[in-house]
């Protein structure tokens, strides 16, 4: 019984060390982490729902956060299978209450970039956006590296 317990502890420690080695940025700069913000410029229209596809062919998605304004603060809906991959579809909608207008940060995505990967490779495509009543809109989508805490 005691031997089994020791074996389990060793296995657990080995797993933890391996996970930490993969996730943490290497000291020699082989791996970097980057957060990118998705902005929708709604102009005078209010945002009811959106869906955006993001592609980062040589990077790995490691986290998804929500946006900055009421109705879109929670993390958008995405397929967990997209984690550790380079393609993700994020979407969110807001029912009830006032919908945000103007330039809205709708999501923040966290990426792990291997050495030599240009962050500019991360591109996004607006699949659909609607107002609160479900009418189609054509807001401008912009992807920008996270540049500090600002809405």
């Amino acid at each position: 019984m005691r031997i089994l317990r020791w074996v389990m502890v060793v296995l657990l420690l080995t797993t933890l060390v391996r996970a930490a080695d993969q996730a943490a940025p290497a000291a020699d700069g082989r791996t970097t982490f980057l957060a990118t913000d998705l902005f929708l410029d709604m102009g005078g229209a209010s945002l009811g729902a959106y869906q955006v596809e993001v592609n980062a062919p040589h990077s790995l998605l490691v986290g998804v956060e929500g946006g900055a304004l009421a109705g879109f603060r929670e993390a958008p809906i995405y397929d967990p299978a997209a984690l550790s991959h380079g393609r993700v579809i994020v979407a969110a909608f807001h029912v009830g209450g006032a919908s945000p207008q103007g330039r809205i940060r709708v999501a923040r995505l966290h990426w792990q970039l291997p050495a030599g990967v240009d962050p500019a490779e991360i591109t996004a495509r607006l699949v659909v956006a609607t107002d609160a009543a479900g009418n189609m809109l054509q807001p401008t989508l912009r992807v920008a590296p996270f540049a500090g805490d600002r809405p």
Binding site: Y50, Q51, A91, A92, F93, V95, V128, T130, G134
Partner: peptide
């Protein structure tokens, strides 16, 4: 539509 509008429609 197969996109988020379906969920949005039912939610509304």
């Amino acid at each position: 539509t197969g996109d988020i509008r379906d969920a949005f429609y039912v939610a509304r």
